[in-house]
Write a protein that binds this DNA or RNA. Sequence first.
DNA 1: CTTGTCATAAATGGTTGCAATATCGTTACA
DNA 2: TGTAACGATATTGCAACCATTTATGACAAG
Lengths: 225, 225
Amino acid sequence: MPQIVHKTRTQVVVEILRERILSGQIHAGEPLRQSSLAHELDVSRIPIREALLQLEAEGLVKFEAHKGATATELSLTQMDELFELRGLIEPTLLRRSVPNLTAEHLATAADYLEQLGHALQQDNTIDSWSELNGLFHLSLYAGADRPHTLDMVRGLNTNSDRYIRLQLLLAGGRPKADQEHRQLLERCQAGDADGAAELLQHHIQSAGISAKNLIEAQMLRSHSK
Amino acid sequence: MPQIVHKTRTQVVVEILRERILSGQIHAGEPLRQSSLAHELDVSRIPIREALLQLEAEGLVKFEAHKGATATELSLTQMDELFELRGLIEPTLLRRSVPNLTAEHLATAADYLEQLGHALQQDNTIDSWSELNGLFHLSLYAGADRPHTLDMVRGLNTNSDRYIRLQLLLAGGRPKADQEHRQLLERCQAGDADGAAELLQHHIQSAGISAKNLIEAQMLRSHSK
DNA sequence: CTTGTCATAAATGGTTGCAATATCGTTACA
DNA sequence: TGTAACGATATTGCAACCATTTATGACAAG
C-alpha cells in the first residue's frame, strides 16, 4: 500500500529534467529557458525555477542570475575530480559498513546485482542499469550509518552517471564491472572490510579511467571533423 | 573598480538567513515561516522560498513540502560524520596543493593567519574569526586545482561552522588552533606535503573532538535542569 | 472519557502579470 | 573601417493573488 504521496510540481519537474540531462537528451552546455520549459511541461515558471535551483545544487545545471540556466558540462579535469572523490570516500564508507552489514542488507545487494545481470539483456538497458548500479553500490554502504555522507555519494554518482551511461552506450555493456561487482559482494559477505575497500577503490578508479578515455576519444572525433 | 554587482533578492535573503542560522540567532529546530520572513525582510514569499531551497541544499535547513522549513540541528553522530569527511578530504586536497603553492598563495594564507591573530582581541570576534578560519584553510588548497572539491569542503565547513562558533563563544578563543595553524603554514612553506597533511588531519580531528565534547556538555546541562 | 468526523484556519504551493536586467543589432562618429 | 553609444527585444526576477494541503479544534457518538 504505497500511501499516495502528493508530489509537488517542482519535484516532478526536477525528476524530468534530471533524467533528460543524464540521458543526454539535454546535452551539456545547452541553455534551459524557463518559458519554453514551462510551456512544454505545462506548469508555470516558478516550479521550473525552483527545479533548476535544485538541479544546480546537484551540480547538473549552472544557474546565473539574469542570464539563465545551462546544463553543466564536465571537463576532463572535473571528471578526474569526481572519481577521485568517489575513490576517496566510498572505500572509507564501505570499510565502516562491512562489519555492520546484516544478512538482509547483503540479500538486497545480491538482488540488485542479479537485476543488473538481467538489465544487460533488456530494452531500456542503459537507464535501468545505471540506476541499479547506483543502488547496488549504495546498498553496500547501508551498514555505515552515515546518512549525510551517503547523500554526498549519491550526488557524486548522479554527476558521473552521464558518463557512465555514455560508456554503456558506446562500449555496449560492462562485463568487467559485473565481474568486479561479484567479487566485491563476495568480500562483503566474507566480512573482509579491507579487501572489499581495496577492490572498490580499484573498481572506481578503473571506471573513472575508462570513462575518461571514452570522453577523450569522443573529443578527438568531434574535433577532427 | 569592483564592477557593481546586482544581487538578487534571493541571494540577499540567503545570506541573511545563513548568517542568522550560523550565528545561532535562529536556533536549531526553529521553524522558518515564509510569510513572517517575507514581511520582516520586506520581500515577497518567492525569494524566501528560493532562499530556503538553497539553504536546504547547503544542509542548513530542512524543507518539507506543505509543512514548512526548519533550521536543521546536527546530532552528535552527524557531527562525527562531518568531521570525518573533512578529515578525509582536506588532507588529500592539501597534499595535492602543497607542491603547486606559489609564493603569492602562501602570502595570502599568511595574511589570513595574521588577521586571525588580531581577530581574537576584537569585538565581533566570533563571526570574523570563523570566516577567516575558513578562508585560511581554503587558501591552502588553492594549488590543488580542484574547484568542485573545494566547493564541497566549503559546504562542510559551513555546516560545522555553527559548532565552531559555539566553541569559540564558550571556550573563549582557541590558542591551540592558532598554534596548529602556524605549524601548518610552516610545513606548507617548507613544501612538506605529507607532514602538512598529517598535521591538518590531527587539527581537524581535534577540532571535531573538542566540538563534540562541548555539545555533549551542553546536552548534559540542559538535561539536568 | 475516549474517539472519530467534519469544519475551519493557517501555512505552503502555484499562476499570472509586471518590472528589472542582459543581449544583440543598429547607428553615429572618430 | 572599426568602435562606442544606444535602443529594441528577449529573458529572467519579483510581487500580488488564488488553489491546495495540512493542522487544529469543536462536537457528537460509542
